[in-house]
């Protein structure tokens, strides 16, 4: 019984990691209606920027506050330089570019920062882990950060005019342009925000799984499963989905399918959600007129 509870607690801890990356996926989807496969690698790259700053002697929170806007600029620039010319291209072209970005960020990070595993500091202190050693201070702290980010995104889209304009630009670019929404700027803004959220996610994840250029490869798939499960249009759904995937993964791996099929479980979730309830548990079904 003890083991069972520990598996759940441990699952919530990994779920927190998936939730934070899932949030970035939701952000980009809300803003552009694309799922950016390079999201994880961009987050990893931002984390390296933060680490470089910290190693240069910048205090943690200052590095954090510099990294987030720098990532915003990188994200917005990518939209302006790489994605904009593809605005009218078929979806597959964008997917190709996303994969290209993924490889580029991965290789460039390896080239600049090497492939050696690096520890990343936690702002929440090392200290003794809590709850019998199953949740570290950092995992608790990063879950809190994830929730704060979640709240801000939700409020941003729900209560601000800018959020509304962004949703409109992604959902129906032509009509939005007609009513005066600067669609291109909105898209760049969406990319920037998604990159910033990714940067936060990266900085929260790195202390747990250590920083290397392939850090996000595994995480992104689980995060994607979480985002889809909760609903890729709904930040709250994505976070809840991330936690659920973490718990299912742990319990399934320990008691049901065995550790070999953990990843398969995540892929299975993706397939089931897409077949049974494409909008996810909390998502809104969007109907568009054609």
């Amino acid at each position: 019984m003890d083991g069972f509870i520990h598996q759940i607690v441990s699952g919530i801890a990994s779920g927190g990691i998936y939730a934070s990356v899932a949030l970035a996926l939701v952000m980009i989807y809300q803003a552009t209606h694309h799922v950016n496969f390079a999201q994880g690698e961009m987050a990893m790259f931002s984390t390296y920027i933060a680490l470089t700053l910290i190693q240069a002697g910048v205090p943690y929170w200052a590095a954090f506050c510099i990294t987030v806007p720098v990532s915003f600029v990188i994200g917005a620039l990518i939209q302006r330089v790489v994605m904009e010319p593809l605005a009218k291209a078929p979806v597959l072209a964008s997917v190709g570019v996303f994969i290209g970005l993924l490889l580029t960020f991965n290789s460039v990070a390896g080239w600049i920062f090497t492939y050696t595993l690096k520890p990343f500091p936690s702002p929440f202190g090392e200290g003794k882990p809590l709850f019998g050693g199953f949740v570290s201070r950092h995992e608790l702290g990063s879950t809190a950060v994830t929730l704060v980010v979640l709240l801000s995104i939700w409020a941003f889209f729900r209560f601000t005019k800018l959020g509304l304009a962004m949703r409109a630009a992604a959902y129906n670019p032509v009509s939005s342009r007609l009513v005066g929404v600067p669609v291109n700027k909105m898209l760049a803004l969406g990319w920037g925000l998604a990159a910033s959220i990714g940067a936060i996610a990266g900085m929260m994840v790195a202390p747990v799984i250590f920083l290397d250029p392939n850090m996000m490869a595994g995480v992104l798939l689980y995060a994607f499963a979480g985002a889809l499960l909760g609903g890729i249009t709904n930040p709250l759904g994505a976070v809840v989905g991330g936690f659920i995937v973490g718990i299912i993964e742990n319990l399934g791996g320990a008691y049901v399918v065995g550790t070999e099929l953990k990843l398969t479980t995540a892929l299975f979730i993706i397939v089931v959600v897409l077949t049974v309830k494409p909008a996810g548990l909390f998502g809104k079904t969007l109907v568009s007129r054609v």
Binding site: G3, Q7, S10, G11, I17, L221, A254, T259, K262
Partner: peptide, 20 residues
């Protein structure tokens, strides 16, 4: 005996199983 895949994000679950 517990295995992990190189695609796993963490091995926390495996560690818990081994301890138990």
């Amino acid at each position: 005996e517990v295995s992990y895949e190189i695609t796993d994000a963490t091995i926390d679950s495996q560690a818990v199983t081994l301890r138990e």
